[in-house]
Each structure stands twice: as C-alpha cells, then as structure tokens.
Design a protein around this nucleic acid. Structure first.
Length: 280
DNA sequence: ATAAACGCCTGACGGC
DNA sequence: TGCCGTCAGGCGTTTA
C-alpha cells in the first residue's frame, strides 16, 4: 500500500489525532503486546520483543522513506507496511472493561497503560517491524528524502548520472531515493514527460531539474490529499481522484487526449501516455 | 552494474 | 453460483 504520502499522513495523524478520533499514543507507556503473525517481527522474537518494550514510553514518531519510526524510552521501533495495511489507534476496552475485538488481518498490537491500543493491520503479511537500539542499521541504507531541500538540482542530476538504469526502477529503488512507489512514480514521470524506460544518465540538466520538481509536486499533493485510497486496505485518502495516468489505461491523456497505455516496466504495472512520454 | 525472475501472502474482480 | 486467472501503494534474493 503505502508510499511516502500515505506514511506521512499516518505520522501526522499520530501527532494530531486526526483519523484516530483524537486519540494520541505519544507519551503513552506500553503495557503489553499481542503478536498474531510472528514473522511480522523481523529482528527479534515475540518473547524478547514483549520483554523489551513493556514499560517503555513512546517519545516521538516520524517518517523516513516509507518507514514509520517510533522513538521509545530506550529503543527504536520501525514499521514498514509494504504492499497492504494500515495502522490504527483506538480504545482497547469497552466501558464495561471487556476487550474491543481485533480486526481481521491485525498482525501485532501494542496495548498502552492508559487503555489505548495501536494495531498493525497487514492483510498480505509482507509488512515488517523491527525493534533495535540503533535504527541506522536499517535506515542507513536509504537514499535521500525527496522533499528535503538539501537534495538540490545539482545533487539529483549527479545521482541520475552516476547510474545507467531505467528511470522508473531507479526512482523506486529505496537505496537511490526514499519514498517513491509505483503510483507516485508513474504520476511524476507523466508530469515530467519522461518515459519510464529512459536511461537515467541520458537526461539533460533541465530534464533532471524538472523531474525533481514534478516528484515533489505529486508527493506534496498526495500529502495534501491524505494519500491515495485505491482499494479496501487504506482509507481516507483522496489523491486517487486526481490521478493523471495511474490505473487510467484506455482513457484519454489529460494533456493530449491520446489513449493511456498500461505496460510492464521492471515487473510493475506502468501507465504512460505514449505521445507525451517518448524515449527521446 | 543492471535487470529479470521469483517468492512472500490475501483478497478483489472479471470472464466464462 | 462457482471456479480460475490476473492483478495489487514492496522488497529481498537469486540468476543471467
């Protein structure tokens, strides 16, 4: 499911309580855990996880690429939702003291001392959670944040020129740039009028700079619209209503009316306007 | 160095 | 109504 804008929306909701009925887990102390799918935990056993996290307080949460990063009293919790899933914060108990039933596909639950709980819901079971002292072990391999002003035109051009790879798989490679996935890459490439199979080191400086602007534009608009909700796994987003090409094969291009095509690039469904996005 | 093929999973959807 | 193939916001490993 989630790409950068969806994860960013979740992080903002965790801070502001939006989309979680005003409930906030920051400052809450973990009481216990429920692990419903063991392989969710990537680097620790359920028992050790429970022992280490119980008693720790959530100090902060932020986003790095598509990762949710929870700073705890003494450790860091990393979550990655992969293809499907969402995070819920809700009351754990009814007024009579009985547990509120969990949802289908809940894979791991944190129960807080104040009665709240946070559920990691992940239908396809690809999502992963890490707990560790130094999150750089995992986050350190990520490329730069696309919205970070420190990523300048010049740096981005040099990055593109240092590889000889097809644009789309390169942009989606989290070691190259952290946060883009299938939807936002298709949308950014359409707006930049670049073919997804174009080779990275053939772009001019002007094309490279324009591509960076368009990447930021689609990510900003995605965040503004609380992400994209294209099926049942992530709800509340709005960006799907303004897709230019993603999932619109057979429809006319918004710019030139040529029929949008769906192809395969790097084993991923890819949507382009064959007239606006040429190889050269 | 680059890219394809495949595995990991469940569920929705369209065609017959 | 089923059954079956295809597809899905990701990513790691293996193979060419």
């Amino acid at each position: 499911m989630p790409e950068l804008p969806e994860v960013e929306t979740i992080v903002r909701s965790l801070h502001e309580g939006t989309r979680y009925g005003g409930l906030n887990v920051i400052g809450q102390q973990v009481r216990e855990t429920t692990v419903l799918w063991e392989r969710t935990l990537e680097n620790i056993s359920p028992d050790l996880f429970q022992n280490k996290i119980a008693g720790q307080t959530v100090k902060d949460v932020y986003r790095r690429g598509k990762f949710l990063v929870f700073t705890l009293s003494s450790d860091t919790l990393l979550m990655h939702l992969r293809m499907s899933g969402d995070l819920r914060v809700e009351a754990g108990f009814w007024p009579d003291g009985s547990k509120v039933p969990l949802q289908p596909h809940d894979r791991l639950v944190l129960w807080f001392a104040g009665g709240l709980r946070m559920a990691f819901n992940n239908p396809r079971k690809f999502g992963r959670i890490w707990m560790m002292n130094d999150p750089q072990t995992v986050l350190g391999v990520l490329g730069p944040e696309p919205l970070d002003p420190a990523l300048t035109e010049g740096i981005f051009l040099a990055m593109l020129q240092s590889h000889k790879r097809m644009l789309k798989p390169l942009l989606m490679d989290q070691h190259f740039l952290a946060g883009l996935g299938n939807i936002y890459t298709d949308e950014a490439l359409f707006r930049a009028r670049l073919h997804p199979r174009a080779i990275s080191n053939t772009l001019t400086a002007k094309q490279s700079a324009f591509l960076l602007v368009q990447i930021r534009t689609v990510l900003d608009e995605g965040i503004q619209r609380n992400g994209a909700s294209i099926d049942w796994v992530y709800r509340g987003g709005d960006f799907q209503n303004v897709f230019n090409v993603y999932g619109r094969d057979g429809e006319p291009c918004p710019r030139c009316r040529t029929e949008i095509e769906r192809t395969l690039v790097g084993q991923r469904g890819t949507h382009i306007c064959p007239r606006c996005q040429r190889m050269q």
